[in-house]
Every structure is written in C-alpha cells, then in structure tokens.
C-alpha cells in the first residue's frame, strides 16, 4: 500500500528553513489573510537580507521591513486599506534602505504565472506609457517589444521564481493539500511560481478528509505545512475571523509615529514573546 508524505512541521522549523538572503513571496492582501505568525517567527529568528515579493503588499511585509529582515521589495502596491499605509516600507523606501521593483498588479501576477508554468516570458499592454516602465526597463526586468504577429506595442516580462512562498490557508491535510476560502487574488500564482511552498494553516486534517474538488493548492506543490490557528491576526481570514480593528489602529499609530516607535511595537508584540499564542494573549489583554 502506498503512503502519503507527512509534511507537518512546527512554525519554528518552517521559519528556520529560510536562509538569510532568500527570495520569499508572501500572499496576504493588505489586511486580509496575511501570514503574520510567520512574519513574527522570522523576525524572532533574526533572518536578514530577504528579497520579498508580494503583489498587494500588506502588514506581514511591513512587519518584516520594520524588523530589518528585508533588503529588496517587489510589489504592485501596499496599504492597510482604510487603516493606513505601509509606514515601515515607505520609510525604508524614502531612506533608500529598501530597494524597490514596482509593477502593476496584473504585470506582477503575470510574472508569477509565467514562473509557475515555466514560460519563457509573458506579455501585456499594462504599464505602457506609465512611469512604472522606465525603471523596470533600466533594470532589465521588462522589455518593450512589438507583437511578432501584428506589430502592436507590448511588453515582455520574464518569469518570476521566488525561492519560497508562504501562504496562509484555511484547511490543509497532512500532505499539504490546502483549501483557501473566499477570493484568491494572486495566491494560486504565488504558490505555483515558488520553488518551495510553505503553508500556515488554520486547521490540519488527515489525508483523505478533504474533498479534492475544494483543494486550491495541491499538496504536490507543497513542501511543508504548519498549524497556527488565528495565525493571521490582526488581519481577517474570510469566514473565520474579522480583522482586529483596535490592534490595527494601534499598529498604525506606532508605525506612523516613527522607526523607534515601530521598533517598540516589535519589542512588545514580536520579540517580547516566544510564541504566536503568547502574542495572541498579549493582543487580547
């Protein structure tokens, strides 16, 4: 009888497997389904020199930048919706501490799509005529071409293949087959593009318990999965829990006040605890 792999690891093991300088793709969107537990663990691990890709930048990227883990960012936008901007990211961009590659949302999702399928390149007309284009052309990340079929102006974009992606899912079985409920934005493309796919899951079940037609990310793509209930806090996970508006407001208050205040937040809520459960208890107090 054949056996299924068991890919369940601890959050500590998951984060410890990411070497300094890795290219990590994150898949939260602003204030929803963000891999906050993972970001906390990576900051505690002292990981540095990361290149982060996130199509719609959110709080986990802001946390990692505030924690000094990130040297380079590839994104299409970043915000905490109505709660505010990514203050650590914006501060690091303004001081030049963070190197930026900036795309339109579709262009970056297409680069990940090409990475997943092993396509030599993808093409789009988005970004033509915009100021997004020149820095990407100068960096060799985009080329302006003409369609070989009708001569129409368009762009060629190379595939993007992050070393790791970290995705917050609802339910995974022990082999890493995973269900994501609600809208999916660029989650499937991010998973497919990455050389190593790591999942943080609200629930873990035995292999065979998931209806295959509900699986968003097949275990065949997944390397490890860890169990962290409420691991997206203070962001929302569709159908499970709402964002914590009070905590998001206090986060933005600290983040917008300045680097020192932001670091004090990390000292209290990230470096000052040793597990995500301790953080959740502190945040609820």
């Amino acid at each position: 009888m054949s056996t299924r792999p068991d890919r369940v690891v601890s959050l500590h093991e998951l984060a410890a497997g990411i070497p300094d300088g890795s290219h990590v793709a994150l898949a939260g969107f602003a204030i929803t389904r963000n891999a906050v537990a993972f970001a906390h663990e990576l900051i505690r691990a002292g990981t540095v020199g990361l290149s982060v890709t996130q199509v719609f930048g959110g709080i986990e990227t802001d946390l990692l930048v505030a924690g000094g883990a990130v040297d380079r960012l590839t994104y299409a936008s970043g915000s905490l919706d109505r709660f505010g901007l990514l203050h650590a990211v914006n501060r690091a961009l303004q001081t030049g501490r963070l190197e930026l590659s900036e795309y339109s949302g579709l262009a970056l999702a297409l680069r990940l799509h090409a990475g997943g399928l092993g396509l030599p390149f993808v093409t789009t007309r988005s970004m033509l005529g915009s100021d997004l284009l020149a820095p990407l052309v100068a960096a060799g990340q985009v080329k302006q071409i003409e369609s070989p079929f009708d001569g129409a102006p368009c762009l060629a974009l190379p595939p993007l293949r992050p070393d790791f992606s970290v995705i917050h899912v609802d339910v995974a079985d022990r082999a890493g087959n995973a269900v994501v409920d609600g809208p999916l934005w660029s989650i499937p493309e991010t998973a497919r593009a990455s050389k190593v796919v790591l999942l943080v899951s609200e629930e873990i079940v035995d292999v065979g318990e998931l209806d295959p037609s509900r699986v968003t990310i097949p275990g065949s793509l997944v390397h490890a999965v860890t169990h962290v209930p409420r691991g997206g806090h203070p962001t929302a996970v569709y159908g499970r829990y709402d964002y914590d508006a009070g905590h998001l407001r206090s986060y933005v208050a600290a983040a917008s006040a300045g680097a020192e205040e932001h670091d004090a937040y990390l000292d209290r809520f990230v470096r000052g605890v040793s597990t995500f459960d301790e953080y959740l208890a502190l945040a609820a107090a």
């Binding site: 930048g57 299409a76 936008s77 970043g78 901007l85 303004q94 949302g105 915009s130």
Partner: peptide
C-alpha cells in the same frame, strides 16, 4: 511621500 502605488489601478486605466 509615498502612498499606495498602482495595485490594479494602472491595469484598469490602461
């Protein structure tokens, strides 16, 4: 002073 960036805004306007 940086704000949000494009997101899908460039794709939509293009």
């Amino acid at each position: 002073r940086r704000f949000r960036g494009s997101g899908g805004g460039n794709d939509i306007s293009s």
